[in-house]
Design a binder for these strands. Structure first.
Length: 570
RNA sequence: CGGGGCGUAGCGCAGCCUGGUUAGCGCGCCUGCCUUGGGAGCAGGAGGCCGUAGGUUCGAAUCCUACCGCCCCGACCA
């Protein structure tokens, strides 16, 4: 492509709307332009990068035996009512009525549509297993879109759905996708990690997320330094460390704690450690108050709580709501004798003679024991894991890092096939529900994640497989015909060699062109200018490490071909 | 939705507090000259319902009210 004829509007200054690096660079490099909150136009060069990702995804999906199809973006509400998700999905599902007043929605995901296809078209075990996928634009009316392509409302996703005869067979399909995902992200040149995850609104029993490691990640993941264990913080199982109960249960006692509401203040005042205290947090589970007990130095993990309660929505209650629900001001709430639904973290159940709020302003209770002094509805793992906790698999040391979720694989089981009555006839003539799996990849997000992971202060540094162009020729010839025709010939030759080349033929000064080349992140830059005029040499500069090579035109072509194709084959 | 902030030329901003001529600056854009290995220089030029609506006032970008949009922090997720 000739730069002079391309819509490639680079910006010297960063638009004020952009905060994170990938968003800033994509705006500056002319990859995207915002239409409205969370909705972007992919400009030509941005689309080129997206296509690179799509093609890698497509190749690997096909290699794994999946078949591509394309489902509608507009979906009838009826299908969603069948699975109960029309209620459950919430405001993220954009709903509207068509001219016939039919309830419709924009597809945020396609389990319903694909299951409908399956029940209509797949009748026999002979059709199975099958894995169908699409690469399509999704719409989720996110509460707060942010970070450019990282969390848009409209985004491109690859979603795949597998159908199997049995749980065991579904496990195989799952593993196949898991392996394909590893290949995909490896080919994209990303540094990533597969982690155990919560299955969220999609539902299902078992899932892994693929996380690109980057500081701007929206998720925290815990990783074992010793074994292969890695999990989303939300999901990471806390392994209860046994404690020895040496002390005999003491007499419960009311003690005065004037004005001491916060855990630290109470502990300072009483001369105790936060680990000896149990705090009572009030959450609203679908609007209804629930008390949650955790040790004073722990944090409640809302996702675990949500799963335990089977709630669609969990929110921490504010001071007023706590008072309304219990009649106790925050800071003095406790489980003893309170009229509130209470659940406890497993750690609390193992504690003895602890301190809790006294359900009365300025009072706490000491020597409290679960079971003797109060009862709870459930005991479960409800707190956030910390790096002090042992690895749940091997007991090793854990560490945390930030991650961007670029892929998610789920074992769905028969939830959708049952609610939509999607069955096939098995060998024995019996009707059975499909055992399903679903597998998503955030295609547009990958481009953003790749930039988060590959940039410097000058701009983007694309991994070769994702680069919209692999070579940029900077022609500094001006009016010099010798140089111009050499640059032109190189352009033609490189294209003939199968490379994607951008020829900077603009009437601009050298510095201007170099800055743009750096910003765009094209892996190899060839400068044709003075040194070609003087001794017939061209200069290759590697974007990533700044290495410079002076070569003849023939060697330049050879060198680029070798280098680029080497990075494309895996 | 809760908390914070912002809407003035294509982009980045100043002006607003303390109302008063023709609304500025940098970048970009157009014309010409000049320059050509790291975002040059000179000269000329185009481009503004000051987010929208209402109010206060002799007079509003500036003060007041409402609305709309956008960004950042939390709940959501590929």
């Amino acid at each position: 492509m000739r730069y002079s004829q391309t819509l490639l509007p680079t910006l010297k200054e960063t638009p004020a709307e952009a905060e994170v690096i990938s968003h800033r660079l994509m705006l500056r490099a002319g990859f995207i332009r915002k239409l409205t909150a969370g909705v972007y136009t992919y400009m030509p060069i941005g689309l080129a990068a997206i296509r690179k990702v799509e093609n890698i995804v497509r190749e690997e999906m096909n290699r794994a035996g999946a078949q591509e199809l394309l489902m509608p973006m507009v979906q009838p509400a009826d299908l969603w009512v069948e699975t109960g998700r029309y209620e459950k999905y919430g405001p993220e599902l954009l709903r509207f009525r068509d001219r016939h007043d039919r309830e419709s929605c924009l597809g945020p995901t396609h389990e319903e549509v694909i299951t409908d296809i399956a029940r209509k078209e797949l009748h026999s075990y002979r059709n199975l297993p099958i894995n169908l996928y699409q690469i399509q634009t999704k719409f989720r009316d996110e509460i707060r879109p942010r970070f450019g392509l990282m969390r848009g409302r409209e985004f491109i996703m690859k979603d795949a759905y597998s159908f199997d005869v049995s749980d065991e067979a579904a496990g195989l399909s799952y593993q196949k996708m898991f392996d394909a995902y590893k290949r995909i992200f490896t080919r994209c040149g990303l540094s990533f990690r597969a982690v155990q995850a919560d299955s969220g609104a999609i539902g299902g029993s078992f899932s892994h997320e693929f996380m690109v490691l980057a500081d701007t990640g929206e998720d925290t993941i815990v990783v074992c330094k010793n074994c292969e264990y890695a999990a989303n913080m939300e999901k990471a199982v806390v392994k209860l460390v046994p404690v020895n109960h040496e002390a005999a249960p003491g007499q419960m006692e009311k003690i005065e704690t004037p004005g001491k509401r916060k855990v630290d203040a109470v502990c300072d005042f009483l001369g105790i450690e936060p680990r000896q205290l149990v705090k009572t947090m009030v959450f609203k589970a679908d609007g209804k108050p629930v008390g949650v007990l955790v040790r004073g130095d722990r944090e409640v993990e809302e996702v675990k709580l949500k799963n335990l309660l089977g709630a669609a929505d969990i929110e921490l209650a504010d001071d007023k709501e706590v008072f309304d629900a219990t009649g106790v001001p925050t800071g003095y709430l406790g489980p003893v004798g309170v009229d509130l639904r209470i659940v406890a973290d497993q750690e609390v159940a193992a504690m003895q003679n602890f301190y809790v709020g006294g359900n009365e302003k300025n009072y706490h209770l000491k020597n409290v024991n679960l079971g003797r002094d109060f009862q709870v509805e459930a005991v479960a793992d409800l707190r956030q894991i910390t790096t002090d906790d042992p690895c749940p698999e091997c007991g090793g040391k854990l560490e945390t890092t930030e991650g961007i979720e670029v892929g998610h694989v789920f074992k769905l089981g028969t939830g959708y096939s049952e609610s939509m009555n999607a069955t096939f006839q098995d060998k024995d003539g019996q009707s059975k529900h499909f055992v399903m799996g679903c597998y998503g990849i955030g295609v547009s997000r990958i481009v953003a994640a790749a930039i988060e992971q590959n940039h410097d202060d000058k701009g983007i540094i694309f991994p070769v497989p994702l680069a919209p162009y692999t070579v940029i020729i900077v022609n500094l010839g001006g009016s010099d015909e010798t140089i111009n025709s050499a640059a032109e010939k190189l352009y033609q030759d490189l294209m003939a060699a199968g490379l994607e080349v951008l020829l900077d033929d603009r009437d601009e000064r050298p510095g201007f062109k170099f800055k743009d080349a750096d910003l765009l992140g094209i892996p190899y830059r060839v400068t044709v200018g003075k040194s070609f005029k003087e001794n017939g040499m061209m200069e290759i500069k590697h974007r990533r490490d700044g290495v410079v090579e002076e070569l003849t035109p023939e060697d330049t072509i050879g060198r680029l071909k070798t280098a680029i194709f080497a990075q494309l084959t895996n």
